[in-house]
Design a protein around this nucleic acid. Structure first.
Lengths: 235, 235
DNA sequence: AATTAAGTTTAGATATACCTCAAAAGCTAA
DNA sequence: TTAGCTTTTGAGGTATATCTAAACTTAATT
């Protein structure tokens, strides 16, 4: 009965012992937090993942056993080479997927993050490769985040937060941090403040006040929170 | 710290209680087995999923509690309307994905099943919709299997197994059963026996022997196993 | 050096989602 | 009615993920 055979594979779950999803998510979280501060502390991870520190500790012990992190009690973690490789692969998947969903399937800027977060763990090497090829092996995703290459290299662009600019400065948006907050992304897209946009800081209101940005003929005003999330390069 | 926010969603797993994957796979299995014989017995499902009958029983009890199946001890299961809806959705996803991977990303006939089996459980409604639109809302997948519409309708084509044809019959391949067996699919593709192909049965060897099919100027010979897996319509 | 506050780890307990095996129970057809 | 098969039950296993509360470490402050 060939039908039975056909059904069989339909049922094959990951029975290989490891639940990749959680592990990959932790490694990704650690990688990203390590960019801000390394080694990464238990509580930082707990915050980011929205779990209790105790849960993080046990996961770190598991990751240490898998040689994915260097972990010594009370002193935080760093990724091993193996761990970093996994993290970069997941991030690569994520960013390729975001770009693909926009380019190939017409999704909006603010819609892609969630779906990519799920798909990043399940696409095969081959699918990743096809997607990358379709996109012409891009190095930057729709939010301006760099896409790690297959070998782990990242094309890093020297950026500075818009919040640190002085009045009169000319700059170009290269990256929007916080790709989880689709409301902000929608808002920024509305304002026309997307990666690639050039602008001049025409005013900074005192007492942590908003920034006025000249974009073409218009002036756009953004608050501190947004200014912090926008990374720029000088033109 | 906006970065923390960004990471948060990166970590969000399905914490919603249900592990969809297994449930969906069971429902899909039951749906497909029910096409052969309904109600579907425990052992049939166990075979198809390659688990022990006892495991099936407990899953059936779980599915019954979820109102996905009608289940009465010792008498097999049938899907409820809700259960069928889920099964059809998963099947729709699967077949759309297979077609999409081929059409949009250049995968081969025999490569798409595995990846689709995983992706079918994780694509959002919106992604499904975009994929369907990209493909022009198709009703048939690369193996000739009908793709259920969003409302659950299936365009059924009246088919008969090639194995039942008599010598001299003219027919067209509409469907290849057993999309899990990529070796067979590769072989069939090599022979040029894919859905849409027209042929005439020029010989059937006795004692369950092979079929000789005239395809254009060539004669292709296929054994019983393959003949059973090929469904045809008359021309 | 001792104290304290903050952060971290352990221990113990739940919970879920599978799965298995062995034995009991139920069905069906000769 | 009983043999043979299928199905269910019940007990138990593994893996993962979580929590609370108590114990501990570290680093900063006195």
């Amino acid at each position: 009965m060939p039908e039975i055979e056909a059904l069989k594979s339909g049922s094959s779950t990951q029975r290989d012992g490891l639940n990749h999803q959680a592990i990959e998510d932790y490694l990704k979280t650690i990688y990203m937090l390590a960019e801000l501060e390394s080694p990464v502390s238990t509580s930082r991870i707990a915050e980011a993942r929205d779990v209790k520190p105790a849960s993080v500790t046990s996961m770190l012990q598991r990751l240490a056993k898998l040689k994915m992190v260097d972990y010594k009690k009370h002193s935080g973690v760093t990724l091993t080479t193996a761990g970093e490789k996994v993290a970069l692969e997941v991030i690569r998947h994520h960013r390729l997927l975001e770009l693909y969903l926009m380019e190939a399937l017409g999704f909006e800027w603010d819609e892609v993050h969630e779906q990519a977060d799920i798909l990043e763990h399940v696409i095969s090497e081959k699918l990743e490769e096809r997607i990358a090829a379709f996109l012409g092996h891009p190095t930057v995703d729709p939010h301006g985040d760099p896409i790690p290459a297959k070998d782990g290299t990242i094309v890093a662009v020297d950026t500075i937060s818009l919040a640190n600019l002085a009045t009169g400065t000319q700059a170009q948006i290269t990256r929007i941090i916080d790709d989880a907050n689709s409301e902000m992304l929608r808002y920024l897209a509305e304002l026309g403040l997307t990666p690639g946009t050039e602008f001049t800081v025409v005013d900074i209101a005192p007492f942590d006040g908003p920034f006025s940005l000249q974009v073409g003929d218009n002036v756009k005003i953004v608050g501190r929170t947004i200014a912090n999330s926008i990374l720029v390069t000088f033109v």
